[in-house]
Design a protein around this nucleic acid. Structure first.
Lengths: 212, 212, 212, 212
DNA sequence: CACTAACCGAGACGGTACGTCACGTCTTTCC
DNA sequence: GGAAAGACGTGACGTACCGTCTCGGTTAGTG
């Protein structure tokens, strides 16, 4: 679990991850910790980041409010840690050797999570716009990993000669996720399997034919 | 000014645009109205939509709180009306006959507004995720017009044989704005002139060569 | 009503008795004020001063907590103003021209209030021991007036030649009320009509025979 | 030390005076016990009974909070045991054979302790008004013994023909201590040597001339 | 020109969430 | 097994805004 924390917690938004004074006293209750994080995820998903309240999380978790304040400095730190699993839960389909196929599979899987995760993450994106530290943590913990996955698929495709090099990979990656988020936020068009197809095709077209 | 209202106000988010009871009594103070709208824009730009408060707007405008509640039903209605000029202020560079050139010019102009407008609009996008009505109004009043402009440019380019028809225009439009918003929200990469170039090129690549 | 305030409020424990800024805005709700004071009296009587809580008073009064904080700076100020009527309600039997009879009547009437008022006032006396300002206000508002009444009766008796001058009136007064309070607090003996008789007799004995 | 406990502890406020389970395990730390009792006395004297806190005592004593809860059931039990020495420390001047002189000496000695002991005992008296058990223990442990001393002096004076029998001794005793406490609580007049004189004289006047 | 209805400012109202503090209980480890 | 350390659930604290309400004081138009 703690493998990814170094990145997540590099800001001061961090939870207080370990006792400083040593081993004395009653140890932290893992039940409470899990209940809090689960409640935070549940509420963030249901109501969106802005509507989440420390009090609400405490009640949903059946926990004293003070227990949350003891371990997390802000709502931001709490929700960020809680939401981290979204990205992990999204996981990643196993690579098949066919870059375009892999990309399609990834996008289909990602798009299926949209209805659940959208209120949470869009709210956090809005929060990012006036909280640079929050933005950094959100970036490192959630968004960058998703970008990295697409990038790896595309690089593998280029390496195998399945994809060309006609445009910056950074741009290609942003086109993919940007389009998804734009539709999620704007809701003027569905985020469905058809979009997954179209985006995969668009990336192929953008990168152009493989080098001869 | 009121030409565009029918679209903006088609939901119940509308401000109370005209008194029902007739013409008796003191007429509405235009000074107060302007002060309120200006204050709303100022605060939304500065702090983001979520942080805007009716009380805050009232104080910024030097106006009684009730005067706002009298004329606008919700914060959403107030801010939406106030923010409308953003889209208009963005305006649109005059067409030159060269679709790619026009697209580049439009993007450059739009990107310049990003630092100012981002906190406002990203917050409103987050709000959209749990307020369908708000989403509809935001969509019609701000986002759809921007999409329409790009679409017109691209259609004109196709009509003039400058651009191909290798992909759906809807997708092309979403790629452009989606990438911009994704970078605005995520802040992992700049939204600058270079991105304008790259996006214009990407659209060309995506649509493919003009039909012979 | 406001006749006695000057004394009651001579400390900074005072409630904010009048708006400073003038006449603007919604005027203070007298309903809320009465409900708060009544609730404060009720709770102080029932639970004692120490157990009274601003929150509890607000709920008992059906009032927002902020409304209390707006007008009273501390629990002490609130309860003191609220409890003031106890002394007034105790009132004073009409003088008859017979000092000993008057004294007996006063004591009997006072002792009847003891079961109701004791928890309130003993708690306030305890508070007095570590809050000098509170002590001063309690003194002036509640205790001194009661002492003054006894003193007046005794002075009248001396003037009419019904009572002697064999001891300091201050001491006589303190003997009376002190004995009552001591039994109220200590509860080792009843505070009843018999005590009223005994105390009246004791005062007569103490002051000695009238001057020839 | 334990001679007086039977009286002090006849209520259920009692400390847990002996381990039930026998002699196994680590014996109770006498250092901790003394530190706790001393801290309790110190804080009760300084801040008054109401302001005393188990947590505060634990910190003042340099002791874990649980160690207090292990041995005393309530704050009341702890403070009562701790405060017991006040009465003993007050002690009692040696009888001289002159009742009035003895009474004066006792009062002078008692009044000298007032500044130290008042916050402690008045707070406990207030507590008594809504805690009958506490009242009983306070009564037996602290107040009754003081009353008994005065009563003994007066009875001895009557036996020796120095004092009359013109009033109930119970009343005389309550007049003395009541006046003292009333002035302690009310603070409208000093509790000093002059008061000792006056009270002794008042008792003489009250009891009247010795039987012929 | 006086009336008068409606607007406007100010601000008190009942609420709700905040973050802090201390409570008394509990659960560890150390001695 | 006692003692310390300290996390736990609880609940009052005082603050900040919320959106509503209720005042006195404007400010046009109409009668």
């Amino acid at each position: 679990v703690s493998r990814n924390w170094s990145r997540l917690l590099r800001g001061t938004l961090s939870c207080k991850v370990a006792r400083v004074t040593g081993t004395l006293g009653r140890p932290r209750s893992q039940e409470a910790r899990r209940a809090i994080l689960d409640a935070a995820v549940r509420l963030t998903m249901r109501d969106g980041y802005q509507a989440v309240t420390i009090k609400g999380v405490a009640e949903e978790a059946g926990v004293g409010r003070q227990t949350i304040y003891r371990w997390w400095t802000t709502k931001a730190a709490l929700v960020l840690e809680a939401i981290r699993d979204l990205a992990e839960r999204a996981g990643r389909p196993a690579p098949t050797g066919d870059a375009v196929h892999d990309l399609r599979a990834l996008l289909r899987a990602s798009f299926r999570l949209v209805p659940t995760a959208a209120p949470a993450i869009t709210g956090m994106m809005a929060e990012s716009t006036h909280d640079a530290e929050f933005a950094a943590v959100l970036q490192d913990g959630l968004l960058a990993p998703r970008r990295a996955i697409v990038r790896e698929i595309l690089e593998a495709g280029q390496a195998r000669g399945q994809l060309g090099r006609g445009a910056s990979l950074d741009l290609a990656v942003d086109l993919v996720w940007g389009t998804m988020w734009y539709r999620v936020l704007s809701r003027h068009a569905p985020v469905d399997e058809r979009l997954a197809e179209e985006l995969a095709d668009a990336v192929v077209a953008l990168l152009g034919p493989p080098d001869a």
